[in-house]
């Protein structure tokens, strides 16, 4: 079936490899490359090339740590990806074909099932009680993030 995890990864790797094959390729085939909305993100938590190859591993690792162990660092969390990369037009990472996740993944023909459960948009309003920011300051200030 289309969503089998391993196929996914293979296909993503193939797609990523194609993207990075050579700068000259990019120049030649530039017209075909996905045009994506980066959202308000200025700088990713990792090098772009690294992220292209490895974002799925980072996310998978982080998801297991967060869910099973309750580790809530934000550096590699899907929620944070969405917060930065949500398109300014649609407010989402996967609502239109130019949105951050959707553009590359449709280019590489890799189906995602993250969005069956996860929100594609950042939280609507800074949540919870008065005086409490959307994300607790505790969450935002991890030693890992200090490296950025």
């Amino acid at each position: 079936m289309a969503r089998l995890a391993n196929w996914l990864r293979l296909a993503v790797l193939a797609g990523a490899a194609a993207l990075m094959a050579a700068p000259s390729l990019e120049a030649v085939a530039g017209a075909d490359l996905p045009k994506l909305e980066r959202g308000k993100a200025e700088k990713c938590v990792e090098d772009t090339q690294f992220m292209r190859r490895n974002h799925m591993d980072l996310l998978k690792h982080h998801r297991d740590e967060t869910l099973r162990q309750g580790i809530r660092t934000t550096k590699h969390s899907l929620k944070k990806c969405v917060e930065c990369h949500a398109s300014e037009k649609t407010g989402s990472v996967a609502a239109s074909k130019d949105d951050f996740c959707a553009s590359c993944h449709s280019y590489a023909a890799v189906k995602l099932d993250c969005w069956d459960c996860h929100a594609t948009k950042p939280g609507k309003k800074p949540v919870q009680q008065a005086g409490q920011p959307a994300t607790s300051p505790l969450m935002a200030s991890t030693p890992m993030e200090g490296k950025q």
């Binding site: 929620k79 459960c117 948009k121 949540v127």
Partner: peptide
């Protein structure tokens, strides 16, 4: 339109 902190979805 799930709450970003509470992922939920069909089939689980």
């Amino acid at each position: 339109d799930q709450n970003p902190e509470v992922p939920r979805g069909k089939g689980c």
